[in-house]
Nucleic acid binder design. Sequence first.
DNA 1: GGCCGCGCGATTGTCAACGATCAGCAGCAC
DNA 2: GTGCTGCTGATCGTTGACAATCGCGCGGCC
Lengths: 242, 242
Amino acid sequence: MTVTRPADTPQAQTHADRIFELVERAIVSGELPPGSRLGEEALAARFGVSRGPLREALRQLEGRGLVVRTAHAGARVVTLTRADLAEIYEIRANLEGLACRLAAARASEAELAALEALLDEHMRAAVLRADEAYPQERGVPDFHFALAAASKSRRLERLLCHDYYSLVRLFRHRTSHRAGHALRAFDDHRRIVQALRERDGEFAELLMRRHVQTARRELEAMDEVFAPGETVVPWPGVAAGD
Amino acid sequence: MTVTRPADTPQAQTHADRIFELVERAIVSGELPPGSRLGEEALAARFGVSRGPLREALRQLEGRGLVVRTAHAGARVVTLTRADLAEIYEIRANLEGLACRLAAARASEAELAALEALLDEHMRAAVLRADEAYPQERGVPDFHFALAAASKSRRLERLLCHDYYSLVRLFRHRTSHRAGHALRAFDDHRRIVQALRERDGEFAELLMRRHVQTARRELEAMDEVFAPGETVVPWPGVAAGD
DNA sequence: GGCCGCGCGATTGTCAACGATCAGCAGCAC
DNA sequence: GTGCTGCTGATCGTTGACAATCGCGCGGCC
């Protein structure tokens, strides 16, 4: 009983894992803006570790698409273009649609009830602060996360929540999220859950695809998502190489 | 102009990148069977590098889903279960379907012609050796690769050809690929290209989904894909944890 | 005056050694 | 005989230092 569960305690995490999460959070939150250089020594000093674990974390972040590395030239935070947004949301629409289709067939009654309770909670939160965005990372779990879990496909869930959500948040982190968007999104979610209730996978998939595509169009409409100032090219030098 | 292109010469590759590819190839080819332990020192000695670059390569492989790492316990080649096969092929069917839909709308005439030429070449190769499998990694480029490229979505292409194809080959590497499968697959491919020619994205998507799902069912039918002997559980100890 | 080559600084890639942690086993108490 | 405890061997995680490479500014040359 004196054994501390290594899977639960953050102590069991190795330094590289912790640095990975910290840098990921810094990138997604905008603290490390797109295109900014990630010097190894500087980052290592900032997080109080050596360059070894940091390099491993950087490799992992590269695999997740959050940083781009060029040999002997260092790592930078990825700079996403309009084409990237279109591609990411196209893929995400399909994948989340698949999650809906699977969830309609596999979700348990308890999971459906949990989804509905989640919607109720979101509505209450949205009513409380109408000017605020749709609740995210405010302690209240995300709708898309719960839905991915209900698909009962661990790989799909990991792909959606672990790999792609960071990229999506990279786009959303500076959007002001006017209230109209939150209400429309909430309505979409409600309709999707209803389709899930009726076990109509095809319809749920269609609704989810349209929901994601709507979000894409909304994001594409605002320019401030991409460039902080007016720099269209990520950084001078290698741009169209790969 | 005297500059040797660093992106083309293999010299520009760092050790970690090279080790990554080598270990990936060893895993996919079955040289490192599923569940086998990947001791750092042994691998480092085998490839003639230190443990530093090797650890980076292992991290990258973990991110790609080819190895599983547990802190302080080492890395092992991933052992894919029947559930994994179902999940992977379900996702792949959707993604390749998406690639078809995009390719139907975006592929240039030259790309379509190249796809048809590829099919001709495949047919000739299949006719030459009817007992052989569908031509793969024999110098002749893969059909699915060309199609992913034709989708004009770099991220989708990377996801399909770079991330998921290794997993698929992990399943296929020991299947004997009887001739019937090759012929049916070739016929599927021909029909898909025809739909692409007619710019019928919906139909091409449907065909591709069924094509992948058929491959899935065929793989599920043969037991030798999963366990080399009769060990159903990957390795004793932690099994259902994650 | 403009362009080319070149050395220097900074940064990355790599290595070998140190401390930390876990699995397995011998030994002892019950 | 059985269960626990402490050790030991091996392996992983981490560190600091060394070598290789690239970008950049200076000087020389056309």
